[in-house]
Design a protein around this nucleic acid. Structure first.
Lengths: 348, 348
DNA sequence: CTGTTAGCGCCTTCAG
DNA sequence: CTGAAGGCGCTAACAG
């Protein structure tokens, strides 16, 4: 449709420099093993004069490599996604590889669509926060040795490198901390636990394990999942039960927002009426009042690791080690989980 | 390097369907004006069987259009950037166009580098939050009729479509509101005002205008700019002057974080000791304590508008109307700017 | 209605 | 040390 006119190609450069196209090509690719100093200089000169830029598309067609990778996140609204994206983009940029970001919006069809377009664009590999619904497609690709790495979630039926948080351990950390701070009616709230959303499942497991380890009975009514649209309603219910929670473990940053909104609306004091621990370090955690206890995921490392592995796969390096790689969350204790019945009221 | 083996091309499809490549090509491009029903079906069938997917790279080379655009943001850490990106990606996705996101990290060289790679990748157009340093390069492109639209900032010397906030008016709104709430020593704090960063310059202008309109003297010592690394120090100084501020207008979300951190550290009460209004609606504004008065930018609309204009340019549609398009910010009054000396202490 | 032909811009043997 | 030739996968006239 458009296309810059005056597009200068390797042909023009060759002409003006008085050499053949292939010589220029060799120059461009640093293959001046036996090229004359003179020629080299002349070509460099002409390239500058003409402001010539190789057409990557043509190059890609020939080379069968685009120096571009794709990343598909389930939902870009999560801070986890944005952080991990930044880390990935960073890494690949250092390696001269571009990154195309896609947001599947939690919709399997949209995810599939992105897989297709990215492949048709011949991206060299894919990092994805995957949904089980597309397990079949992933397996096809993997069978063809197409480089893919999963992030944040794994799919049982799809045996590919997956970078995950040690979710169970993370939840245990959080719950143990709350128990030790004197909370006993601890609730866990998160978006729906559909099959295949690893973190949510594992976090509930960790939650149960921690309670059991402290011989605190697991009460189903304290384990809640809801779409964001129904979070307020769910919280309403949660606080209407006979023995309402005295602490909540928030499954992620968006859930936390819902909880904080609810608490404020109902004038419940954080860390006093209800203790809070959340997964995902949100930027306002330190100066919120009271400051928020969080489980910080090593998003930077996780993103980087995913990128490193993908690059290795693209380069066809042998994969050593486990396919499932786990990272530990770090508990950052702040005031929202202050010991219950803490004497002082200096909640900062 | 890699490249799926067994790559099935149009050639295979043609063979298996017993037609020629061009027939398949026509089929793919919906040019079946006179194609036999029979043939059509056969081709469709074979495509499915072979799981054939057109190679967009080859297609692009021929068509001279990649169905991909690039967006370069100055700094992706600003919520403005992420929001606007989402809006842009959304729009183009609806139009079957992919988006490559790049983060220039406030570094002109990095921005230039991205311009080059994106162009070499033959993207069909560019949306950018630009830096003056690259004005020359932008002008070269514009001269060649290459589609570019600017967002958030304009560059005087570069006459291209630019989508901006009405920054002056926005700042006036904020300052007027603070004045009407009884604040008199109003400070404005933002990152450095280097040449060419439109919003910061215009916001200071609006700030001054509002004060003058109320015949409140403009005090230079209340107008502060600093790198984030030096924000705390700057705030320190700001509050050490003879008549320290009783209100601060935060230039953006990251600045706000610095301010809130400082206030908490120094145990200053928001909305009581110091009123706060910030530009950029941060997600915690509503449930922060006290809730935060913000100027909400219509990021969704702005991003979409930029995308629409870019698409029009790509399609070579004539540009009508002004090159500079302004959007109004909306003042959302909450508690952080409660009238001074407000009797009740129910600051919510 | 379908096939032939001729590239898009670049890379890569293989001669010279 | 350099050039000619062929082809990556697809499109687009133009013939049949």
């Amino acid at each position: 449709m458009i296309g810059l006119k005056n597009k200068v190609t390797i042909h023009h450069v060759a002409q003006k420099a008085g050499v053949s196209k292939s010589t220029v090509s060799q120059f461009l690719n640093g293959r001046y093993d036996y090229m004359g100093e003179e020629t080299k200089k002349r070509i460099a000169q002409v390239i500058k004069e003409l402001n010539y830029q190789p057409n990557e598309i043509a190059r890609s067609l020939k080379r069968k490599t685009t120096s571009t990778i794709g990343v598909i996140v389930a939902n870009i609204l999560h801070s986890f996604s944005t952080q991990v994206i930044r880390s990935i983009e960073n890494f690949f940029h250092e390696h001269g590889i571009s990154t195309i970001i896609c947001n599947a919006d939690d919709k399997p069809e949209k995810e599939l669509h992105y897989i297709q377009t990215l492949l048709s664009k011949q991206v060299d590999g894919l990092i994805v926060i995957p949904m089980v619904e597309n397990a079949k497609r992933y397996n096809q690709l993997i069978k063809k040795k197409y480089p893919i790495v999963f992030l944040d979630r794994m799919i049982e039926q799809v045996p590919t490198e997956s970078i995950l948080l040690d979710n169970e351990r993370a939840a245990e950390l959080a719950i143990n901390h709350l128990i030790e701070s004197g909370y006993r009616n601890i609730s866990i709230l998160s978006p729906p636990v559909k099959a295949g959303i690893t973190p949510r499942i594992e976090r509930v497991n960790g939650y149960k394990k921690a309670l059991e380890a402290h011989t605190i009975p697991v009460r189903q009514e304290l384990i809640r999942h809801a779409d964001f649209a129904k979070m307020q309603e769910t919280l309403e219910q949660l606080f209407s039960i006979e023995t309402p929670p005295d602490a909540i473990f928030a499954g992620n940053d968006l859930t936390l927002i819902e909880i904080l909104t609810y608490l404020k609306r109902n004038n419940l004091k954080i860390g006093k009426d209800v203790g809070i621990v959340t997964i995902d370090e949100v930027d306002y955690a330190p100066f919120f009042k009271p400051s928020l206890t969080t489980l910080k995921q090593p998003t930077f490392d996780m993103g980087r690791k995913a990128a490193e592995i993908l690059l290795a796969k693209i380069r066809n390096e042998p994969m050593k080690g486990e396919k499932i790689i786990r990272y530990q969350a770090e508990l950052i204790v702040r005031s929202s989980s202050t010991p219950k019945n803490y004497k002082s009221n200096t909640i900062v």
